[in-house]
Write a protein that binds this DNA or RNA. Structure first.
Lengths: 141, 141
DNA sequence: CATAAGGGTTCCACTAGATGGAAGGTCAAG
DNA sequence: CTTGACCTTCCATCTAGTGGAACCCTTATG
């Protein structure tokens, strides 16, 4: 009962290309059949599902590699896992803060622009650092 | 009064490498001195500041290129600028929604993990799709 | 048996937006 | 003359895949 790459792709939802890529970078090591085709075990499939979920949660490939290692290590400490996840969460919080600020600025700019066929545009003025009525950070002369 | 790349870098806050890169992809076209050094005009410097700000606002390089074109086009319609910014804003909103959901999930996982020296870990269980007390999406049976 | 469809394989190129570094030219000061 | 701080180009690297070409394998059908 061999499992070819397409079967695994269907089961895990990962594109075949991605599965090959994951083998390439050493995340999985499927067997080979006599004809050269990859032969995936249930364990391989399980690992790929694990990776898929971890990637969906935004973990980097290197984090995924570590997490997979911890997953397979019966003697792991949950602290190690938690530390990785907590750090990732921190990064996401940072990114969120940045994006929220970005959104505010963009919202202000977009709503201050008439969006008609005249050339005058507060968005371009902001980009060119030409101060218009729409104020940005305090910078008096 | 020539302006070398370092001067422009200092003025705009952009690394020299980035400035060269921007020339490479055709965002600016500084003159050259006899010795081959780039010779930046005030206009070049201004454009780079514009690009720097636009990149800070998260616009893609291609958007930046278009925005710069519009900026220099006296006959532009502000609608064109607004459309680009509004679309960018939409993308950011989408990203924000994703990140917020991601954060919730991660927060739940991290806080459900003891983070001690024992191997049992709800985070790994989630990744391996092993259902523990911490519930994720409804998937009965 | 030939062949065509639908698998599989490898390998190389490309994406975005820079950044690091090597190898070498230029310039001003001491 | 040499030192150090500039400048130049070019190539490689990063993330996480994705697209495509060229080619091999398997199975069903005429």
């Amino acid at each position: 009962m061999t499992m070819n790459i397409k079967d695994v792709s269907t089961r895990t939802g990962l594109p075949a290309k991605t599965i090959r890529y994951y083998e390439d970078i050493g995340l999985i090591r499927p067997d080979r059949q006599a004809n050269g085709y990859r032969d995936f075990s249930d364990t391989d499939c399980h690992k790929l599902a694990f990776l898929s979920r971890a990637r969906t949660l935004g973990f980097s490939i290197e984090d995924c590699r570590t997490l997979l290692g911890l997953y397979e290590d019966e003697a792991r400490a949950s602290a190690d896992v938690r530390q990785i996840a907590a750090h990732h969460l921190d990064q996401i919080d940072k990114r969120l803060t940045e994006l929220l600020e970005l959104r505010d600025t963009l919202q202000r700019l977009v709503s201050s622009c008439a969006g008609d066929n005249r050339p005058d545009c507060p968005i371009l003025n902001d980009l060119a650092n030409v101060r218009t009525s729409t104020k940005r950070s305090s910078a008096g002369s």
